[in-house]
Design a protein around this nucleic acid. Structure first.
Ligand SMILES: [Mn+2]
Ligand SMILES: [Mn+2]
Ligand SMILES: [Zn+2]
Ligand SMILES: [Zn+2]
Lengths: 137, 137
DNA sequence: CCATAAATTAATAACGATTATTATTTTTGA
DNA sequence: TCAAAAATAATAATCGTTATTAATTTATGG
């Protein structure tokens, strides 16, 4: 999965807190949101520390960063295999059960010559709330 | 596909050129790269104009913007249905023939309640060049 | 054609998310 | 307990992108 040999990190109160926050939500928060949550418990924490620790946790494979869209970075504490859908109107991101069919990496490898490590499947649509709002407009 | 009613744009030399540049490459260039190409033909063009026209062309559905990764915006003049793969080492993006399997939007809609409009499938791996370089290191 | 209104442009400033810098504090392990 | 290494808070810097505005270009219809 990772392309570089493992690094060993010193533990820190800040990183433990960030991981706990990410694990305790079903949403896919941004660094700014995590920062606001974190300072409720560690008022002196800084935004730079949040970014740095998110990168470390990602490197350790303890969290994931979504590759949905081109906007701000969104993080996911749920390591189970699943896909995502984003609402084109309000931007909300939700989990989607992983697609049943298996992806043929070897077929892709044969077609393009790359060694395939993983894939990302994202859906784009309109959430129930925005669908209703559009109907009532 | 689009969620807002069509707008009508006045034509412009700049937008025609940008579209031509995008159609004449098999790569997936950034706004900055397109800007450099464009100023070879229209030396007075500005980067802001490139960004604005890329947004317009996207809105018209005459080009696509990749949703690969969270980095800078990459554009694609090829409207045919296809997927993409990105090299985890050098960042190169290439086309992948569309996956044979059909995605069941109705199944996703049933699971999450969203109305699904489209999806994006991206692979991540290592390109032949980087694979060779790693072997020789 | 020409006049007029509307859209587009070039130049540049502003913005926002992220990363880098640095002096200080915390962690680790001998 | 102590010194080296790593992490932190504060803050500056970076970078891709968007907004602003006066000047230019385009559409159109008389
Ligand atoms: Mn998720
Ligand atoms: Mn493509
Ligand atoms: Zn919505
Ligand atoms: Zn490569």
């Amino acid at each position: 999965m990772s392309l570089t040999p493992a690094r060993k990190f010193k533990s820190s109160r800040q990183r433990d807190l960030i991981l706990q926050i990410l694990r305790s939500t079903k949403s896919h928060p941004s660094a700014a949101w995590i920062f606001e949550e974190a300072r409720k418990h560690l008022p002196s924490i800084s935004l730079g520390t949040v970014y740095r620790n998110l990168a470390m946790l990602k490197e350790e494979g303890r969290i994931r960063e979504l590759s949905v869209g081109k906007g701000i970075g969104l993080f996911d504490g749920d390591l189970r295999n699943h896909d995502h859908i984003r609402c084109l109107v309000c931007g909300r991101v939700e989990d989607v059960p992983p697609s049943a069919q298996s992806f043929s990496y070897s077929q892709v490898e044969g077609a393009v010559g790359y060694r395939v490590h993983w894939h990302s499947l994202e859906y784009f649509g309109v959430c129930p709330g925005c669908e209703t709002a559009a109907a009532n407009e």
